[in-house]
């Protein structure tokens, strides 16, 4: 049971299938870190992204790349609308996190119902077939979906980190995540940054959903379930810690799969909640929500220091 080929297969396939979830988790974690919201409405972004791709490819018979662009565009579109008409006004009136959460949850349901109205509830996939042929690499079966998924996810993650560390907007995002009011003193427009964050989250979500929908069936309510895994990974991995989130998503996927070798298969689903609870109860120190965090001992954004000439 614990032979090398078995473990290798589990490792590879888990890695490949966790790619979508890594992206979902990163999108969620990013919005939480910078905008300080539990963006439950990401489920709405996911659903719309999928159905956009499905419409272009599955229903209209368009080419793959067009469907991909449709997924990105739709997801980003929803994200932008959410920010401009939802989160921004709520932020302006200093609504509590509970209020924002209710808003996000209800929006997700609203979108799900609209999709149900238009597309019905029958499960759908982006491409007519969800079967991807495999080639054997040693004892491990690698499907034609796996490699593009892993490659595009790594590329997306690399792009994200490059964006956050190299570009001005990205650095501003980190500044706002740290201390939004202070960042404003340095001339960073919070609203603009919040919007950019949502757009980035939309891009990640669109890509992830396109990948997911190419190998699995989706129904209007599916996204909410998918999102729960992403949320768990975010919490366990450490709020504010994007790298931790990504790694957690992969590890959770591998552990869930490998767990059947150790525990009765019925309890596989329960495992996630055990991890979540353990993380909340036993590792609170390393995990603190941004709102409660007092001033950090990190250097102020380098932009200000450079312009002033001296620290």
């Amino acid at each position: 049971m614990f032979s090398l080929p078995i473990l290798a297969q589990i490792l590879w396939t888990s890695l490949a299938t966790s790619t979508c979830f890594v992206l979902f988790a990163l999108a969620f974690a990013l919005v939480l870190k910078v905008n300080r919201i539990f963006n439950f409405a990401q489920a709405a972004m996911m659903t719309v992204g999928f159905y956009a791709a499905y419409t272009v490819i599955g229903l209209a018979g368009g080419p793959g790349w067009l469907g991909f662009l449709a997924a990105l565009a739709a997801s980003v579109g929803v994200a932008v609308l959410l920010e401009i008409f939802g989160f921004r006004p709520l932020r302006r009136r200093r609504a509590s996190s509970m209020f924002v959460f209710i808003f996000a949850l209800v929006i997700s349901e609203l979108i799900a119902y609209v999709i149900m109205l238009v597309y019905g509830t029958w499960p759908a996939t982006i491409f007519p077939s969800l079967f991807w042929p495999v080639t054997l690499v040693g004892p491990v079966a690698v499907s034609q979906w796996d490699v593009p998924a892993v490659v595009s996810t790594i590329a997306a993650i690399a792009a994200l980190f490059a964006f956050l560390h190299v570009t001005r907007s990205g650095q501003f995002m980190t500044a706002v995540a740290d201390n939004p009011d202070l960042a404003e003193f340095y001339g960073i427009t919070k609203d603009r940054i919040h919007l950019i964050t949502m757009i980035v989250a939309g891009l990640l979500t669109g890509l992830a959903m396109f990948l997911y929908g190419s190998r699995a069936q989706v129904q209007p309510m599916s996204s909410i379930d998918l999102l729960l895994f992403a949320i768990a990974a975010t919490i366990i991995g450490g709020i504010g810690n994007l790298g931790g989130t990504a790694i957690t998503a992969v590890v959770l996927g591998i552990v869930q799969n490998a767990s059947v070798l150790f525990i009765p298969s019925e309890w596989q689903g329960f495992l996630l909640y055990v991890f979540l609870f353990t993380a909340i109860v036993f590792f609170p120190k390393g995990i603190r929500l941004p709102e409660r965090r007092l001033a950090r001992s990190t250097p102020t954004p380098s932009i200000g220091a450079d312009e002033a000439g001296e620290a």
């Binding site: 055990v274 979540l276 909340i280 609170p284 929500l289 709102e291």
Partner: peptide, 21 residues
């Protein structure tokens, strides 16, 4: 007891996890 120790906002995630779990 388990979720409120850290901060009130943690209760939200803890409560979702508890419910589904």
């Amino acid at each position: 007891l388990s979720s409120l120790r850290v901060s009130g906002d943690y209760l939200l995630i803890g409560s979702i996890g508890f419910q589904l779990g």
